[in-house]
Design a protein around this nucleic acid. Structure first.
Lengths: 123, 123
DNA sequence: TGTCTATGTTGACGTTCATCGAATCAGGTG
DNA sequence: CACCTGATTCGATGAACGTCAACATAGACA
């Protein structure tokens, strides 16, 4: 089981982003396929602990943080690891080991995609 | 039990938005209280059927639609009603009966709040 | 009044989830 | 080597969820 992670954005072979997964929510009714892609992202943020973990990573310097910096959310260490894995599987975070610590960072393309989902609401 | 619904945004008596429920996800780590308020909104959108229903309402003319216009999502009518109720409880939709039909519309302040959560990513 | 249509509600069923303790494993440091 | 950080696994439990069929309700219309 090599590093297999969900990639909610359609990317070309080179890793360049081609198009976000879904249009703005107000543009047109979402198709079943689009919804089945986008819903897991929202679902991943639908847990308070995961939302705090994600926010902790996103607000950390350089949009990355090691687990030791963000694991103070009131649940056990295996549970933290479990939630970080869920966020990774949803494509919202990526992880990288550097020396002793594992660093998590937000997946910027996904964030841009979600921002786009709620665009056209600030008008 | 009068129409009691979640109001994730703090509003003044006049209905003017004072402050969104939560800061941008990148601004600072979310507190437990903020997360417990914001997570249900994401959770409500974390189901494919609900996401499609919400998108159908949001993209409909005037940001409102009667159930008969959006209930073609492949599940039974009671299930549609159930999901619409969930979206209402999460504060994402409001409903109003006009004659025979019940119309749902998006709660604009909440949408603006979620858009703000993902702001500062386009920089 | 009765009947039809459009929705909401209820109860049930099976599934998924969040969480824990405890143990173990893997990689890195000293 | 011992020690640390973090991931993984296992079993277990209680809660929440998605779905449906059946029933109830509310308005429109005759």
């Amino acid at each position: 089981m090599s590093n297999v992670e969900v990639q909610p954005l359609t990317e070309s072979g080179t890793g360049e982003i081609v198009a976000p997964c879904c249009p703005p929510l107000t543009e047109r009714p979402m198709s079943a396929e689009e919804a089945s892609v986008a819903a897991p992202m929202f679902k991943a943020l639908g847990d308070p602990v995961r939302l705090r973990l994600f926010s902790a990573v996103a607000s950390h310097e350089g949009s990355e943080a090691c687990v030791c910096d963000i694991s103070d959310v009131g649940v056990s260490q295996p549970t933290v690891s479990h939630h970080l894995k869920k966020l990774k599987e949803a494509g919202l975070l990526t992880s990288e080991r550097r020396g002793t610590w594992v660093y998590y960072r937000v997946a910027p393309s996904v964030m841009a995609s979600m921002a786009q989902s709620f665009a056209a609401f600030g008008s």
